[in-house]
Design a protein around this nucleic acid. Structure first.
Lengths: 341, 341
DNA sequence: ACGTTTTCCGTAAACGTTTACGAGAACACA
DNA sequence: TGTGTTCTCGTAAACGTTTACGGAAAACGT
């Protein structure tokens, strides 16, 4: 039996209004009364019922995090999200906010889950991950006027929401830069075929760097595949069939890189020896693969914390004295040089 | 502006009581009225406010999942939990339950987080992961009478809560069995030094199998280390310093196995060639490491779904006609034979 | 001493539901 | 016609908070 604010009031022989004001740090309560209330609260082991305050305040004090699985990827970009979630959750907890995780099957069902969260007011805001280039979840939330932020950029929804993303363009650029400096001219790029925005951004950077060095962008060296190991395995031979095959490959996804390396090995090509390989987003796998894979690493936990801050700054209920702000940030990645290039 | 049950009532010119009964499928409402209510609900895009029903019903319709990080493990047993969470969340969603994720720093603070969930009634039940042999979270929840279930067994709390675990004992047994069949007699066991229950269970199975084959259990071949790569790296040389060194090592943790293999390599010992290696819990890393690591794989997503079912069966509000049941299950692991043994 | 301000607190409504209770109407049966 | 039953619905309380409002008492100023 949890004690309620009424128990406190009865115990102290004062009204529940005063108790509530004392507890919430309002000014119009006597210092001594407040002390007595707080003491009694500790004594009776009181803590406010969340449903009660939610109902009254019209706020749930919880944020939903929505993971949209890529079709064919059973793992939800697995290693990526735990550190991010850790940071996100930590910062939210500091503001006494809960984190609700919403997953689901790919496709329409996902939209349904989102509608449920919004319409039944299960959360005060949503954080979207795995944003698509055109994302109907963003369209929906914008139209519904429901607050949200995204991990990753999208072309949907304009600049009306906070977003935090990795600088894939710069990573693509730097990867080419590094390979060119090591003497490569024939550099392939392999990315996921879905309309994931980062696939486009990465390719932009890749193209820009090539042009800067006067290297022609050869469509034969660019390939799209399924965003998993099988995709990398299937699509890597394509670029190798070019009349003038590459001497280096940049993979836009760690799972695709692993599949690609397997395909290379079967062709008698040894990654890190006969073929330079760079991966855009580092995961623990890159560190333990043989050869260890040179990769670009994002500061995931810090990003989780930051996106929480950005989201809160956009919410009237949490914005500071300067008012709400919508910010968009793009964070650089750190190059982890290993054996594969 | 979400529409409330009052809007519906006004629109249909009936009382809110009737609307609520119609919506909730109660018997004492005319079939025609019910049809009209449901139609109007769709038309006005009504869905019930979650805080309102929570307050009235005294149930939040959400389940908390609590991840207790191991000290020194920043990743929270990373690859392990996403598939499990996926299954857990999927089954909970079928019952219209939300999943709240609670993480936090190791140690006391974690208890604080748990108390907060319980005392402010932020969830109807808790799922604990990373259970310790003696787990004060279990003690606390038992004493508080708060419903919960655990992923993993513990010695705390008796048989009062549902639990689902992997059969580490059998895995340890089978690992030895397999190695003995391949001619090994000197088999080392390396496990985490924390009081994680699975470390003990694993060792029980290991000992049992050795005894069955009349092989003496040599304490020099058993070592405990930190539950991460560094721990495996530090502790593996210990067992190698035995007067009669092992020809096979069973690692009770994938990260420790990776560190251990590194240590072996530095000693000029090639895993899978000069030394058989088996890992108890498979992760994607085992599949991509070189050599690929023979490992025991749990059915994580199915376990997530199952534990959700078990938890719900123990809750009066969700139990079927047979009433609440507390069940404990131990699931076998599947041996994935690879190159390392 | 009197008016004015300040301090503190109680009252009561409100948030959106669910549900116990009871009442009216319709119906059945003798 | 009277009695009992069944169907259907309205009324109102309750869940635990927060907060607008107003009033009593105290403090202050002249």
């Amino acid at each position: 039996m949890a004690s309620s604010i009424h128990d406190l009031a009865r115990h102290l022989n004062i009204s529940i209004g005063t108790v509530s004001r004392a507890l919430n740090g309002r000014a119009d309560v006597n210092a001594d009364t407040r002390r007595r209330v707080l003491e009694a609260a500790r004594e009776l082991n009181y803590s406010p019922n969340q449903s009660g305050r939610s109902l009254r305040q019209g706020a749930t004090h919880s944020i939903a995090f929505m993971l949209q699985p890529h079709p064919g990827d059973q793992q939800y970009g697995e290693p990526f999200f735990i550190p991010f979630l850790t940071g996100l959750q930590a910062r939210l907890a500091e503001h006494d906010l809960d984190l609700m995780v919403v997953m689901g099957e790919p496709g329409q069902y996902q939209q349904e889950r989102l509608r449920r969260v919004v319409e039944t007011r299960r959360a005060d805001a949503v954080v979207l991950a795995n944003t698509r280039r055109e994302d109907d979840r963003i369209d929906y939330l914008s139209k519904a006027g429901f607050p949200f932020a995204t991990l990753g950029r999208s072309q949907s929804g304009g600049d009306t929401y906070p977003s935090l993303d990795i600088d894939f363009e710069r990573a693509g650029d730097e990867a080419v830069e590094r390979l060119v400096a090591r003497g490569h001219r024939r550099i392939a790029a392999i990315r996921p075929s879905l309309d994931l925005n980062f696939g486009y951004l990465f390719l932009d950077g890749y193209r820009k760097a090539l042009k800067r060095h006067g290297i022609e962008v050869d469509p034969d060296l660019i390939a799209d595949g399924f965003i998993n190991e099988t995709g990398g395995y299937q699509v890597t031979p394509q670029v190798m069939r070019s009349k003038d095959p590459p001497t280096a490959i940049i993979f836009n996804n760690d799972a695709m890189a692993l599949g690609g390396c397997k395909a290379l090995a079967e062709m008698g090509i040894k990654p890190g020896h006969d073929m330079a390989v760079i991966v855009i987003v580092d995961t623990p796998l890159c560190r333990y693969f043989s050869p260890t894979l040179t990769a670009f690493r994002p500061a995931l936990e810090a990003m989780g914390r930051r996106l929480a801050e950005m989201l809160l700054a956009s919410l009237p209920a949490f914005a500071g004295p300067e008012g709400t702000r919508i910010t968009r940030e793009v964070w650089p990645l750190e190059l982890i040089a290993r054996e594969s290039d």
